[in-house]
Design a protein around this nucleic acid. Sequence first.
RNA 1: CGUGCAGGCCUGGCGGCCGCGAGUCGGCAUGACCGGCUCGAGGAAAGUCCGGACACCACAGAGCAGAGUGCUGGCUAACGGCCAGCGAGGGAAACCUCAGGGAAAGUGCCACAGAAACGACACAGCCUCAGGAGCCUCGGUUCCUGCGGCAACGGUGAAAUGGUGCGGUAAGAGCGCACCGCGGGUCCUGGUGACAGGCCCGGCUGGGUAAACCCCACUUGGUGCAAGGCCAAACCGGAGCGUUACGGACUGCUCGUCCAGUUCCAGGUAGGCCGCAUGAGGGUCUCGGUAACGGGGCUCCCAGAUAGAUGGUCGCCCACGACAGAAUCCGGCUUAUGGCCUGCUGAAUCA
RNA 2: UCCUCGGUAGCUCAGCGGCAGAGCAUCCGGCUGUUAACCGGAGGGUCGCAGGUUCGAAUCCUGCCCGGGGAG
Length: 119
Amino acid sequence: MSRRRHRISRSGDFDAVYRKGTSSAGRHLVVYTFARGDDEPARLGLSVSRRVGGAVDRNRVKRVVREQFAALDPAPPDGIDVIVIARPSVMAYLQERGSEALGERLMELVGEATKNAAP
RNA sequence: CGUGCAGGCCUGGCGGCCGCGAGUCGGCAUGACCGGCUCGAGGAAAGUCCGGACACCACAGAGCAGAGUGCUGGCUAACGGCCAGCGAGGGAAACCUCAGGGAAAGUGCCACAGAAACGACACAGCCUCAGGAGCCUCGGUUCCUGCGGCAACGGUGAAAUGGUGCGGUAAGAGCGCACCGCGGGUCCUGGUGACAGGCCCGGCUGGGUAAACCCCACUUGGUGCAAGGCCAAACCGGAGCGUUACGGACUGCUCGUCCAGUUCCAGGUAGGCCGCAUGAGGGUCUCGGUAACGGGGCUCCCAGAUAGAUGGUCGCCCACGACAGAAUCCGGCUUAUGGCCUGCUGAAUCA
RNA sequence: UCCUCGGUAGCUCAGCGGCAGAGCAUCCGGCUGUUAACCGGAGGGUCGCAGGUUCGAAUCCUGCCCGGGGAG
């Protein structure tokens, strides 16, 4: 499977998710979701600002989030766009608790956001 | 042994499993697919402080101003970099540091203190002589005034008109001498040169600050790969200014050349390809050079992403390893940081 | 990717070679029955950091660190 195809790459798509989607915020991550309404696989977008850390730390955060997103169980439904925003405290959490703990937080937030969008 | 100094090197390795980017080969269910093989971050990729390559701006122009550099010789595509020297300063030493041209071209500044801070002259003061007054042991001594002589002495200060010693004198003074310092020379020797050593002259003719203005020498057009080029898509309405002018082509000025438009409002596109990785390239051998570096032979192809790829986990090696992630590409500088090796020093401390 | 501006008292800023200042805030005293206002006084600073030039640096020079703004 292609990772690239499952990413949000155009700024217009980002704007659509921010404007029309629903959000759910945690201490270290913020998740936006938006149902496009087609049957393509779910896509992921990432936003990691300089406040998180240097280039090495930011790459690590993006890598971990992508891995954990691909391993989500249950997997997010088709036709959905998900944007994950990293907050500045995420590096400290990652070093303290590890990538799997961050995956659990991600699953909670994604579930919450999709539930909010459903009704 | 520890300490200090200098130089060089590396940036965990091997194996298993899961996962990512690019290239290439193959498969068929031709796709935004699957499989095999190969390659896949750094010494600083960083800060963006210099220098180039490359691209466009006029054919990349001229002059001034502005800006930058500043011991000598060399290296380099170039540099504010590097190498080798010279001089000055620091250290016990190994060794380190230095924007290190010009102050008799001119201007400015030198607070406070101090007699005086740029011209030196005055002030304060010292001395001979003359006159007057007092004291008096009648030889002198003190004070005042005057004609002269002098520049040693001056509670300062970062800095005070060469320093120390001897002679000399009424008191003194490079006035004379010795040593040290300073300045000068169509001078001599060595060196490509900075400069060093010597000789002779001047007896001294006065400071500091140019990382103050400045003078001198040399360098210097601007913007930056989101440069720039091509393709596709969309909008292709209205108003004003101008049409020998203004405006634009780096900021200021002058000249010259070129461009035909340009400003505001409204509306619209912000997708793909090239640039984009074979280069002042790396490795190794050899020759020249003290070295930086250069010549030649052989050999290798070594990241090219575009919401942006290198990680996770397990085992072993004594060890989680430090700083940290390419975005047009090179040469440097600076800063952050873990470890290893080699050589040198002998102050203090320990033995 | 690149270009700019700034860092001085708790806050906002001035000072650009010679003992570091103003306003607001804080504290103390006065006024008032009390508070505010007002009056008088006091404390508070590695001038972002490190070198250098100078007799002397917040000021001049060089290199860093941390913020703010802008262009495409």
